[in-house]
Design a protein around this nucleic acid. Sequence first.
DNA 1: CGTGATCCTGACCATTTGGTCAAACAATTT
DNA 2: AAATTGTTTGACCAAATGGTCAGGATCACG
Lengths: 210, 210
Amino acid sequence: MNVERPRTRIQKKNREAILDGALGVFSTEGFRGATLDQIADAAGLSKPNVLYYFASKEEIYTQLLSTLLDTWLDPMREIDASGDPVEELLSYVMRKLQMSREFPRESRLFANEIVQGAPRILDQIKGPLRDLVDETAGIIRAWERAGRLAPVDPHHLIFSIWATTQHYADFDAQVRGILAPEDSEHLDQAAAFLSDFYRRALTPGGVNPI
Amino acid sequence: MNVERPRTRIQKKNREAILDGALGVFSTEGFRGATLDQIADAAGLSKPNVLYYFASKEEIYTQLLSTLLDTWLDPMREIDASGDPVEELLSYVMRKLQMSREFPRESRLFANEIVQGAPRILDQIKGPLRDLVDETAGIIRAWERAGRLAPVDPHHLIFSIWATTQHYADFDAQVRGILAPEDSEHLDQAAAFLSDFYRRALTPGGVNPI
DNA sequence: CGTGATCCTGACCATTTGGTCAAACAATTT
DNA sequence: AAATTGTTTGACCAAATGGTCAGGATCACG
């Protein structure tokens, strides 16, 4: 049975349990590494029961991917062309960092997918994602031309924001391995660092020369 | 047969072929996703023949990981405490970016491993990698205290350099999906962007206010 | 309560996968 | 060229894996 919209409360509950469990498994194992048994286990259901709600492992995965991409891009949509350029970009950085804190599994799911060549999400990247990025790049370019932002390549600025913020979710194991293990404040430190860092780099003419 | 040091030219050639093939497979599939058949295929050998040179899939993988980590850290070892702080860090950024260009498979191999929780390399991270990072952090902190560098958290600066440079190898599929496909100059643009960007952010007191 | 629809499961299946092994084949040494 | 050592492979195996299915359990509702 291949229900698009959950009709009963049981369907809703179980589909959610499956997607939540699958998110955990896929995000740490990748698509090929994840097994239906693990997913069923994480969801608290039997394997045949999982396949009663989703036609295949692939369907669970693509369902997850396309649902999450939207959420993932929300912080970028909030950038306001009429706001103060540096402050708008800084709060974008903070929103992205916040997502790494709140949704690390989602971040790692995308990381896995893209590192492995984005075989199942390339269309979405070349379509909606690219459009949104180009639009944002336009805003940044306009700010920059108006002299309200240091000169930067908009696309590479966006890449750098993604890289630096998602790093804390995607490479969490490494970050924890390097920083003192008892140090659980590292995301707050990261916020302070990135905030200062991007402010210095983006403010036209440099900030408060000493 | 489990030969540590290749004794014959055939051993040398085949072990290299296996490691090279395996690098390609592991870097795009992850450990669990990769199969011995794929590796054998990529190496141009039969599966039993691969297992004649390496005891198991796991042994190939860990061999790759530990061999490569050393190369991977070389750029950081080159940082010279007696050089000019901003220039030393900028050339470190450029060396790291150059590695993304020359060794994208190696970068993705580590990315896969770490995204999935670094199950087989955590010891090396907590040991040698951490030591080197702490040492470099000490150098950066000294520069900063001497007022030769803008105030930054050394560890998070290092993370940001890793993130921004490796992004171009690890998330290559996304970068290519977003930038114009005909644009094969994006790594040169990235070099220009990162160079300007880190110079602005690191130079104490800001750079050449207009 | 009865009945049709929904939900769940044990048993099963075909394929894939990591790994073994005896025997054939090739290189090197004596 | 015989003996020794090193290399390669086809055939095979057990376990894991994605997926199926018939039938039983449960639920919603007239």
